[in-house]
Amino acid sequence: MDKTAIDILLIEDSPFDAELTLRALRDIKILNHVQVLTDGEEAINYLFCQGEYKGRDLNLNPKVIFLDLKLPKIDGLEVLKMVKDDERTKSIPIVIVTSSKEERDVVKSYKLGVNSYIVKPVDSNKFIEAIKEIGLYWLILNQPPK
C-alpha cells in the first residue's frame, strides 16, 4: 500500500472514463498522486482504512475525492453520505463527477454535503477540459484543510 498522501482519489467504475480522466490530469501534471478505485465498497474500505486497506493511515486523506454516482456494490450517494457523516472524513472535499443531470441527484448530493457537482460532458474533448479545470481548481486554487 501506498503510504504517501494522495492528492486525488478517483472513484470511477468506467475504465474508459477513468482513462480519459487520468489523461486530463496528466496534461496538467498532477497525475502523480492519483488513486483510482472502481467500486463503492472499495472506496469505503479505503477511506475508513478497513478491509483490504486496513493498514492505511487515516490521517493521510486525499486532498479531493472525485466521485462517480453510478458505482457497483455501494452507490456513490451512499459513499458520499458515509464519508460526510464521519467526523474523520467529513472535511475531505468531494466533487461528484457523473453523467447524471437528474435534478434529484443534484439536490440529494448537495443535501448530503457534496462540495461540487459536475456533469460529465458527452463530448470527450469537453470532458477532458472539464477535468483539467476541476483538477486545477481543487488542487491549486482551493485551500484544503490541513
Partner: peptide, 14 residues
C-alpha cells in the same frame, strides 16, 4: 440517460 451516455464518451474520447 446515465448508462447510455457513458459509452458515448468513451467512443468519442478514445
Amino acid at each position: 440517460s446515465h448508462d447510455l451516455r457513458a459509452p458515448l464518451r468513451a467512443l468519442d474520447g478514445f
